[in-house]
Nucleic acid binder design. Structure first.
Lengths: 368, 368
DNA sequence: ATGAAAGCGCTAACAG
DNA sequence: CTGTTAGCGCTTTCAT
């Protein structure tokens, strides 16, 4: 019972018994030391302008000296503001989301917000659970490549402000990376290289981007009198690409467009194993321009997405929505265009006819 | 003022004015509906065994029906448990941390905990700020590759339970990826290929792993009568490696060991630009085996670190520490060994002497 | 400009 | 087993 406010002595005794050095100072401790009411200390931090300058300085100084820190959770309860933002991604491991996370985290930090990250494991149930568990703990969510149905998303949005990325489900505001124009250019690129028949490796069934890209691909192909086959759906991973490569070969196409770079890299890897030259025999085109796309072998031609900007935009949108009141700033989608980045994985179509290749035995030269 | 508990009507009226549909049901709403006390509802969720089975079922059912969800923050205040864990990394963008984040998140989710992610931007001040801001909001922290001083870490640890990764600062529990044995093997590997003089590209000055690796390298080199020069410190990024490549060449070494794969990949890239063959003229060795190390060109020989396991271990350690009381389970370090993974970026040392190379003009063939 | 008092939603003794 | 009563640390009317 040494130097401690008398009315707090018992508590700090309990603390001591529990093992930790000393209870962190609260608003009351500061108030006592300054001989003001707790509410004044509170104001000094939350509404500095509503407090006499002199008292404010005195309070702030003592607080600093005592090592007082506002308790964010205690603050969140009455105010209803947690200053935390939930970020849900299907797979943290996917480097695509790495850029997104980074952008989001940067934007959030800049605004004094904290990011709570959760991984839905590409599974709608897990996503729902995470959403549920976090709903009360955050001021809003950024849902990236959500696997949830439109209905569920709308429902969730009515419980807590949402921003979706790579998804369009009005009236929920969204950040879209539009790869349609770039897809068009990619097909033109392929066509100009003499490719007439190619495959599309599709991603997760519930992916909005996948559906959109496939549609773009089809419509462009039709106009250009090209042949596209769709393979999949595939898990959007390197392994998914490895597994799909043989099917690609079996289709006898001269070019593949993959749902994402991971898939494309997987294809690249398997093709090398099989001794199939890229782009000599098959051209490969990815999407996203993730970390690694520029230094894989060969460097990947891809539809570069402004991922980090998307993350930043999503958080900005959410923040704007948060402080514009419950219904303000609704449904102002931001769409960011992807751009075709040509590297070395695409090249002129081989001269021999596909029928020849189709009948060749698939020679597997297991290397690794 | 429709179907609502009478004593809550005024509140829901306020709610309505504020715009959101309806206040989320609380423990009291459920209690009223079930004609029990609020504390019983609380127990039904927190200590189910202390409640009569029948009542419990009834409560749980009504709660579910009403869409009641415990408010994590409100729950955290009296209990002092937030079920959140802070994860601080120097740079989210660095794929090394990707694996760590993933492992941590998986382990946390499995235990019903949530990960709060923060990025310190390779800066000790930012790290401290993040630590400060989050301290009250989480039950504990995992600090990965912290840039903070030992003293600061110990201090922080006394305020909130910590686990450090890639750092050793007793009595704070740590998860260490020990690359020393693998480093030894790497040098032997290099020596057996005829390399006698090589460079070490060091990472951030405050990095524990860097210091440790350098020491291991030196001691092994000394015993083998090899020459090692240390270059750096360098930012542990691809760009850092790009920038360092010329210095490596200027040193006239036949092999480079990099602090991490990012640096190594940067070196690879620059070397290709310069038309220097890897491993023909220079062998390159990375560390970590991050995403991309196996598909870059050439695939990187590296000291593979069990990153994801490290993340998992860190959270497990933290969790164990949390529920073993304030002082229990202290200082049980986990050390995970890295392993040498030989791929194609290392090969026999070139035959010509380094003096010849040293005097050649550095031919820059800017490609990209 | 400041103080007093009433919560925010939930947990945790303590009685019964 | 369940109800009552205090808070957790902070914000926010409402007075003064």
């Amino acid at each position: 019972m040494a130097a401690q406010e008398p009315d707090r002595a018992n508590r700090s005794a309990r603390r001591a018994r529990e093992g930790r050095p000393a209870r962190a100072p609260t608003i009351h401790d500061v108030a006592a030391r300054c001989a003001v009411a707790a509410s004044t200390v509170s104001r000094a931090f939350s509404h500095p302008e509503r407090v006499n300058a002199a008292t404010r300085e005195r309070i702030l100084a003592t607080a600093a000296e005592m090592g007082y820190r506002p308790h964010p959770l205690a603050r969140a309860l009455p105010s209803g503001q947690t200053r935390m933002l939930g970020l849900l991604v299907p797979d943290i491991t996917n480097p695509f989301f790495l850029g997104l996370i980074r952008g989001a985290q940067r934007a959030a930090a800049a605004a004094g917000y904290t990011i709570v990250l959760a991984d839905s494991d590409e599974c709608d149930e897990t996503e729902l659970t995470a959403l549920d568990r976090l709903t009360r703990a955050v001021d809003g969510f950024v849902l990236a490549s959500s696997r949830l149905s439109d209905a569920r998303l709308r429902e969730a949005d009515s419980a807590v402000p949402l921003v979706v990325v790579n998804r369009r489900v009005p009236p929920v505001p969204s950040v879209l990376i539009d790869s349609a124009p770039a897809t068009k250019r990619a097909v033109e690129h392929l066509a100009s290289l003499g490719h007439t028949r190619f495959a599309y490796l599709s991603g997760p069934r519930a992916s909005w981007s996948d559906a959109r890209r496939w549609r773009a691909l089809q419509s462009v192909a039709r106009r250009g009198d090209l042949d596209v086959v769709r393979l999949g759906p595939l898990p959007p991973t390197v392994d998914g690409g490895v597994a799909a490569a043989d099917a690609v070969l079996a289709e006898g196409v001269t070019a593949v467009v993959a749902f994402n770079d991971l898939l494309a890299i997987g294809v690249l890897r398997r093709l090398r194993e099989l001794g199939v030259s890229v782009p000599g025999e098959v051209s490969v085109l990815g999407c996203d321009d993730i970390f690694g796309a520029d230094f894989c072998d060969p460097p990947l031609t891809t539809l570069a997405a402004p991922i980090e900007r998307a993350g930043r935009a999503a958080v900005d949108l959410l923040l704007r929505r948060l402080d514009s009141g419950p219904s303000g700033g609704r449904h102002r989608d931001v769409v960011l265009p992807a751009t075709l980045t040509v590297r070395d994985s695409t090249g002129p179509a081989p001269v021999r006819r596909r029928d020849e290749r189709r009948n060749e035995p698939t020679q597997v030269t297991a290397t690794s």
